[in-house]
Amino acid sequence: MFDALSPEEWAALNLSLKVALVATLASLPAGIAVALLLARGRFWGRGVLDALVHLPLILPPVVTGYLLLLAFGRKGPAGAWLEAHFGLVFSFRWTGAALAAAVMGFPLMVRAIRLSIEAVDRRLEQAAGTLGAGPFLTFLVITLPLALPGILAGAVLAFAKAMGEFGATITFVANIPGETQTLPTAIYTFTQVPGGDGPAMRLVLISVAVSVLALILSELLARGLQRRMD
């Protein structure tokens, strides 16, 4: 099994896992916060925020990737600022692949979490209030635990999306083996060269296996969460 993959294929698999994991975990707090705002908030500009969050879902991925390049490239306003202040570089690095994956997965993540927060009975939150809990504590101890299955589902969706992201990634950080070449971009490369069918098929099988594993893992976790209530 370990000999079955070339170093280049291993690198693509490792990078994809790293990118997807970092993208999911780093965007999760923001995803929960935005989902809470959309589910419970009543403020001016809520519709605008909703549209903005959904933008990566409806824009062509190439467009999202190009916009990321304009904003977070080394000469882009956000990119230049982040490099100057935090030494954080996105363009043509794996970090950029993670950013692209996070942005593309964000609408899916927010949607799942928002639905699960909306499904939490507000009367339970009221009851917590009469028992002395303020809004933040109520969210932490009542709303968040009850929405956990949806948060998990949102994270798994974002992870799966990140594993498969292609268009925005290749536009933003290109397809550099060992640096920004993920499973999908590696598969694309192999399909473009003579004799690449074997490696492409191996990576396809690995992609499928990783996705199925993630799904099984989330299903087991969800059952565990459900058992808390029984």
């Binding site: 009975d121 009367r123 009221q126 009851a127 009469t130 002395g132 009850l146």
Partner: peptide
Amino acid sequence: PSRKRRIGYVFQDARLFPHLTVRQNLLFG
């Protein structure tokens, strides 16, 4: 705000927290 009134409320539909045990529910407030 209701959290500062120190008024206990027994709702018609109980409204127990489903993810907590009875003991945790009882000692919440």
